[in-house]
Design a protein around this nucleic acid. Structure first.
Length: 264
DNA sequence: ATGGTGGATGCTCCA
């Protein structure tokens, strides 16, 4: 089973790129973030025509929004609120094979890495703290779980183009990275992409729109993640970061990240 | 050190 996560930065604008993604990766399950579309305007027909017969959606007007599109039947769907807000940042579904799949869009956190001076950064820290606490309370440690999404944090030194220069840049600050680590430890989550790509190798999933030439400057960050519960680690077959998607016409600033899980 | 671009919206927010 192939599961792909992608911050698409407006689903309706980039529907043609979903078709292109299907051509490139043919996901069984596609998790999107920043769909930026309210549920009543969600392009169900176009996605059904691409083979995604099963869809779970939670959106809002203009901002945020997540969706899970699937060729396989989806079981029970839940959308949890975080930090007491109804801001469409989470969806969970049950997949065939008794897999619980969670799709997250973590707040970006604004520009100033100081929770006292920047409410958005405070919200981001609270969100990750709450996620870590919530997951620490979830028992059934042997459960088959996959967690994907734009987590908006690049935790490792080689998840950013310059560790030193990004230590005080939102997405790579110690305050974020420590909380991210606590979240990951909360269930012993396995970083499914770093399982295949050594930690000393640079790996990015996002390149800013603000670069004149994203290829030449290559100042990327790895903000998009796929985690699996420990019991699923032996089922990991492959991970792909589809760098070429950043060069597609009118691209998202994020690229799709994919894993293959062995059927069993 | 600064400002750079892109998307949705509607005279500005968010990333």
């Amino acid at each position: 089973m192939r599961i792909v996560t992608w911050n698409i930065n407006s689903l309706r604008l980039r529907l043609p790129l979903v078709e292109r993604l299907v051509g490139a990766l043919n996901p069984d399950v596609l998790c999107l973030q920043e769909t930026k579309v309210e549920d009543g305007l969600f392009p169900h027909e176009a996605l059904a025509a691409l083979g995604f017969a099963h869809r779970a959606v939670v959106g809002m007007k203009g901002y945020n929004g997540v969706a899970i599109l699937s060729r396989l039947p989806l079981g029970a769907t839940t959308a949890k609120r975080w930090c007491g807000r109804k801001d469409a940042r989470h969806l969970a579904v049950r997949l065939p094979g008794d897999i619980e799949l969670h799709n997250f869009y973590v707040p970006a956190g604004g520009d100033i890495p100081d929770p006292a001076a920047n409410d958005k950064f405070a919200h981001k820290l609270s969100f990750v703290e709450e996620a870590a606490r919530w997951w620490a309370r979830q028992k059934q440690r042997g459960a088959r779980r996959v967690l994907v999404g734009d987590l908006n944090i690049a935790p490792l030194e080689h998840d950013v183009w310059s560790h030193k220069q990004l230590l005080d840049v939102v997405s790579h600050t110690p305050a974020e990275v420590e909380r991210f680590a606590r979240w990951q430890e909360s269930q012993g989550w396995v970083d499914a992409v770093r399982h295949f790509v050594p930690a000393d190798q640079k790996l990015y999933s996002w390149w800013s729109y603000r670069a004149h030439d994203w290829v030449a400057s290559n100042r990327g960050r790895r903000l998009d993640h796929i985690w699996v519960s420990p019991v699923l680690q032996p089922s990991l077959e492959r991970a792909i970061v589809l760098r070429e998607a950043r060069g597609w016409p009118q691209p998202s600033d994020h690229v799709p990240v994919s894993i293959d899980l062995a059927a069993d």
